[in-house]
């Protein structure tokens, strides 16, 4: 049977659903243990944040795709939440092994971490649904094409929806790939492409936290001298 772009996209969607079949859109018992081990239990904040971002995502999804599609947006969001909790658990297991600690209070109470991780999970879900346009040239060309209405949802759409700094999103990508070994080659390349776009342009916008860090680094005298923002 010849492989068509549509069939390839359908296969990717099916694979994603199978991989997430055994996961829940609620924190697993292992994750709940990590939450309880924190100096400040982040459970409530995490649940509240997911609910708020669910509303924002669904509304923006409906605006982009069509008002009748709000339910579809919620389904995509739920898949993203399943992946978010799955990857979070895997990341924490790796960190526990690496650092020999079980209290991740600072990390798990960091809003930028959670929003970035959820955004990355949703980017994987959204990009899976536009798989055919990824194969036709990735972010640069695929998202500019009018072959699918859902290409409007391509990266960096999710950053705008969640009001997220590209610099923070960038920080989760490598750990995300490490923590999710079942990630398909195309998706890994897509995330790598997102990295390049951030590195080449998005992280250098005027409001990027990168400039404060460069300034701080210069004041502390560590590392190389930073270039001024205009450069």
């Amino acid at each position: 049977v010849p492989q068509t772009p549509i069939r390839a996209a359908m296969n990717s969607i099916q694979q994603l659903r199978v991989e997430l079949n055994s996961t829940s859109d609620q924190p697993s018992s292992n994750l709940q243990v990590y939450f309880k081990n924190c100096t400040v239990d982040p459970s409530e904040e995490i649940t509240k944040r997911v609910e708020e971002l669910s509303q924002v995502f669904s509304q923006r999804f409906a605006q982009a795709v069509g008002q009748r599609c709000e339910g579809l947006g919620r389904k995509r969001f739920n898949l993203g939440v399943q992946l978010y909790y799955k990857v979070m658990e895997s990341m924490l297991k790796s960190e526990e092994k690496r650092l020999s600690v079980q209290n991740f209070s600072k990390l798990l109470n960091n809003a930028a971490f959670h929003t970035s991780l959820l955004a990355c999970a949703l980017e994987v879900v959204l990009a899976t649904y536009v798989g055919n346009s990824l194969k036709n040239g990735g972010f640069g060309r695929g998202c500019g094409a009018s072959d699918s209405i859902e290409t409007d949802l391509c990266f960096p759409w999710i950053l705008d929806v969640f009001q997220l700094h590209a610099f923070d999103f960038y920080k989760v990508i490598e750990s995300f790939i490490k923590a999710e070994p079942t990630l398909k080659h195309d998706m890994m390349k897509h995330l790598e492409h997102c990295e390049h776009v951030i590195m080449e342009s998005l992280a250098w916008r005027g409001d990027s936290p990168l400039f404060d860090l460069l300034k701080q680094s210069r004041e502390e005298g560590t590392g190389e001298q930073a270039e001024p923002p205009a450069t």
């Binding site: 790796s94 991740f104 490598e174 390349k189």
Partner: peptide, 21 residues
């Protein structure tokens, strides 16, 4: 995921990237 260029060093992880202990 062998084609991906991993840049983090052994002593770095998500905790360090979000300024945590």
């Amino acid at each position: 995921n062998q084609d991906y260029h991993f840049g983090l060093k052994e002593h770095e992880g998500i905790s360090e990237l979000f300024d945590c202990d």
